[in-house]
Nucleic acid binder design. Structure first.
Lengths: 358, 358
DNA sequence: CGGGTGATAGAAAGCGCTTTCTGAATCGTG
DNA sequence: CACGATTCAGAAAGCGCTTTCTATCACCCG
């Protein structure tokens, strides 16, 4: 059917071993021989049989990418830049393939896909998205990651905290400074004069949720130790979807506790919050300021444009790709924290002079 | 290292062949034996070695998904629902893995990734996104697809026209009624009273561009045969990014040809157009109406909410997954056209009474 | 000028599965 | 009750690579 390595070898007048060696390098092959083999490969249009190679080498060209859901822009951008960075010189010289798996953040799904990827002898794995902070899951995940990494498979944790693992393993973590971003965002709101700041946090038990909330609270406390207490009843947990932000905001409104600003766990939730406020006849930012997190592309086009915290997703994806392919050495200590940046736009402004409306 | 099939066989007291048969079915295995094997698999936590299986069976569990760019919501949603639908009963029983490849719509990239996927013995391929309508590329693509399909690999074309291929091949096409959608959108604008309608088309030579433009024009012509001529100077081609829409609109404005509405090739371009209009001090929709295409999630949150045409991306992804896995038989004729739906929102309204502003 | 010493290339043994091809029971039936 | 038909399980031959291990040259130095 397809051209095999043996055919290439025959045409070049060498042994299969030699062809394998020019293909994989790491072994001396004389210039003339190499040229002849390359010519034969070219002539025959040889493309390696991935499974055969993976079986023999016990490692494949597959790179597993676990995301909550690629349909979500956050993960789409991350996965997209990662995939593109896997073939830095363009698709024509691509070799590693990205296997993307939607886990919805569910621990069992992560474990299941990791098992599958291990079965596929994936040459690397990138785990993205906030992690469930459940000891049982963390242990199970750590065990699985240890196994894979011990087998020489690089594992990159991206946007989630490091796992408790032995140091020598090829595991690296790329984090976002979520805490710092949330801190600066809250500072921004405080500087504008807001004191009753509602916060729509992500699902409880998720690392991202905790980090962002922690940064937010830290800023409140720093400004005024009593503020966190005042704002506590204005803090709710919700999912990461727009509808969750909408519902959470309605709930907040229903409670009757006044607030002049609402910060959300991410941009999507923030748009839901903004919609709920609008539907309640509340003007943004004149009556209530709204802020998101992530700086997804749509933020500049909402009405008004959303103040948010930029998370360097493209950079993270590209970095993860370099780390997982070994094109960039794993940093000592294994942890890289990427900076986040406050993006002030139209959805935040000073609180109304006459007091809060809701 | 990992548990092998032979170990499972030993534990169950059967031959490897038998284990393979209970794993793959299609061959009678007595109830008792099957139970014993399943128990052994469970006990040992056996996970099949993908490459070995793929090598022996000459087909892998990989499904190639070619997209222009997963970072783009259009493709992210398509790929996301496709990936999720690959494991209908949840990730724990997933078997097929989605390999997503960003091609940027480039013909060479599509060919390169297809070669790679063929080398990986992919068990199916889904080609999404508008296709370059270049005869050379179409022929090369058709050749490659024929080869793969002839080898029993289902190929699904999604959102692009069918390829000229023999009928018996396992190839199916899932199209969107782009033309109909564009037609109805233009009708909507015409019904509102617009006559000078600008159109920011996609890149020339792309099937999607042609279809949408054709539908748009057909509506103009149907309404008034002279209208297409009037609007011709108001039609420009641009890329699919927001910036392209912004620039194209500025260019349109600079030309001085008045218009009261602008329809864009997609939502992203439309937001760029809207931004350019806003920056020029033009009110939407009071002075100029704006419409997009695709109905990406952010459409409801722009200012004003974007009138657009809904493209059933999730449905298409799920359908493609079913077709490519053989869970749903390929339709006779191979072509399925999914309906599109006009979504009227705030960005379109009647043209200004006093004539057009630009 | 002979035996180390590198530098290259080939032979061959798998990697862990699938899948014929056989073989041995078990069954139904005249 | 004997014989072919049927059902189930095992033996073994690969699938197309990688990778030791081995073999062959050329050299080079004493």
């Amino acid at each position: 059917m397809a051209v095999t390595l043996a055919e290439v070898a025959a045409r070049a007048g060498v042994s299969p071993a030699t062809v394998s060696r020019v293909l994989n390098g790491g072994y001396p092959v004389a210039g003339g021989t190499r040229t002849r083999v390359e010519q034969a490969i070219e002539d025959l249009g040889y493309v390696a049989n991935g499974p055969a190679r993976a079986l023999a080498a016990a490692t494949s060209d597959l790179v597993g990418v676990l995301v909550h859901d690629v349909a979500d822009s956050f993960f789409g951008i991350l996965a997209g830049s990662l995939q593109s960075a896997l073939a830095p010189a363009g698709p024509s010289d691509a070799r590693r393939l990205a296997v993307v798996c939607n886990t919805q953040g569910a621990p069992e799904a992560e474990l299941a896909y990791l098992a599958l990827l291990e079965g596929q002898r994936a040459g690397g794995v990138v785990l993205t998205g906030g992690a469930a902070e459940d000891p049982g899951h963390t242990a199970a995940l750590a065990a699985r990651v240890t196994r894979m990494a011990a087998g020489g498979v690089p594992v990159i944790l991206c946007g989630r905290p490091p796992l408790p693992l032995p140091d020598e393993l090829p595991v690296a973590t790329v984090m976002f400074d979520d805490r710092g971003g949330a801190f600066r965002l809250a500072e921004h709101l405080l500087a504008l004069g807001h004191r009753r700041i509602a916060y729509i946090a992500g699902p409880p038990g998720l690392s991202t949720t905790r980090e962002r909330l922690a940064g937010h609270r830290a800023a409140l406390v720093r400004h005024d130790p009593g503020l966190a207490g005042i704002c506590a009843p204005l803090t709710v947990h919700a999912g990461f979807e727009r509808a969750a932000g909408y519902d959470a905001t309605r709930e907040l409104l229903r409670r009757g506790e006044p607030f002049t600003a609402v910060a959300a766990a991410n941009d999507t939730v923030a748009t839901g919050a903004a919609a709920a406020l609008r539907d309640a006849g509340i003007r943004i930012p004149e009556e209530v300021s709204v802020a998101g997190f992530d700086d997804l592309p749509f933020c500049v086009d909402t009405a008004p444009a959303l103040t948010t915290v930029r998370v360097p997703l493209r950079e993270a994806g590209a970095l993860a790709a370099q780390l997982v392919t070994g094109r960039r050495p794993l940093p000592p200590g294994g942890l890289t924290t990427l900076p986040t940046e406050l993006m002030v736009r139209g959805s935040t402004g000073p609180p109304p002079a006459g007091g809060s409306r809701p």
